Simulated assay, not measured.
Amino acid sequence: MIVTAVTGKDFRQVSRDLILTPYGMRDTYWPAKGDYDIRGPHAHTYGVHPGRPQGGEVDLTDRLPTYEFGPSGGLVSTPQDLNRFWSKAPLGKMMARTVPVEQEGWPEGARYGYGVTRMKSGCGYAYFAAGDMPGAAVFSGRDRAGRAATVYVTGVPDKRQHLIDAFVATMCDR
């Protein structure tokens, strides 16, 4: 809503113009209205459908209107594109003003900037974005040396720490 108010343009167009195209993120896109499928090969996602929780865990791959998630989970990307973004991400600007992350399940000392979180890891500071939606969770980021990693899992882990550990191990063991 802020992007639209400031630019007068839909957030999808602004993100394409300012991030996706300049960063070479060719396989990243915003689904069209009414689009329930994901383009190209991809993992299936399994979880509880938010509109029908009584159905238990189901294959959600083509059952969620990702367009409706908007900027809070509608963007579809690939690990390669996310790692490409992180190789060019302006960390100085993204971490110019930070606040402590006080949400349970995050590492002690983690700080949140402009869309990015910083935490200490076994190989120095890690900068990342993370999120989940029904049936999937992702951690994507880099360290100061530029080593990027993206960890995507189907299903949402019971403990965020498992996903954090996988992300750090992937990034630090390169």
Rank of each mutant, 00 (worst) to 15 (best):
T45M: 14
G56R: 04
V156H: 12
V168A: 07
G55Y: 12
E108W: 08
L20S: 12
D158A: 13
A32Q: 13
F69R: 09
G92T: 12
H49S: 12
C172K: 13
G135D: 01
G40D: 10
R142H: 03
H49I: 10
V14W: 09
N83A: 11
G70P: 05
V48F: 02
V151E: 05
G146C: 06
R144Y: 00
L82W: 02
A96P: 04
A32E: 12
G51L: 06
K93E: 06
L64T: 11
F128I: 12
D59F: 02
T98C: 03
V48Q: 04
D59P: 11
E68N: 15
I164K: 11
A43K: 13
F69Y: 15
G135M: 00
V116Y: 13
P90E: 05
M133W: 10
P134N: 06
A5C: 06
V48L: 06
R16G: 07
G122W: 13
T78V: 02
M119Y: 12
K88E: 07
Q161V: 15
H42L: 00
S77G: 14
T28C: 03
A136Y: 11
C123W: 06
R39N: 01
Q80N: 07
L163E: 09
A169K: 14
E102D: 13
Q103R: 15
G141A: 01
R174D: 03
G40C: 12
W86C: 03
S87Q: 07
V99R: 15
A89K: 10
G92C: 03
R52Q: 11
K33H: 11
R84N: 03
L75N: 00
E68C: 02
V151L: 08
L91F: 10
A169Y: 04
G155Y: 07
G155Q: 13
G55A: 09
W106S: 14
Q13T: 15
L64V: 09
G135R: 00
E57W: 08
G8N: 05
T28D: 02
G51A: 09
D59W: 13
G115E: 06
G131W: 08
H44P: 06
S72W: 11
L163S: 04
R144E: 04
D81Q: 02
P134F: 00
G40A: 11
Y112I: 14
V101L: 07
M25G: 04
P41D: 09
L64D: 01
L82C: 01
V14D: 03
G56M: 05
Y46T: 05
T61S: 14
E57D: 11
T98Y: 05
G135Q: 00
S121C: 14
G124V: 09
V156E: 05
F69G: 00
A149F: 10
L91N: 10
G47V: 08
R174C: 03
M94T: 03
M1N: 07
W86K: 07
Y112H: 10
A129K: 15
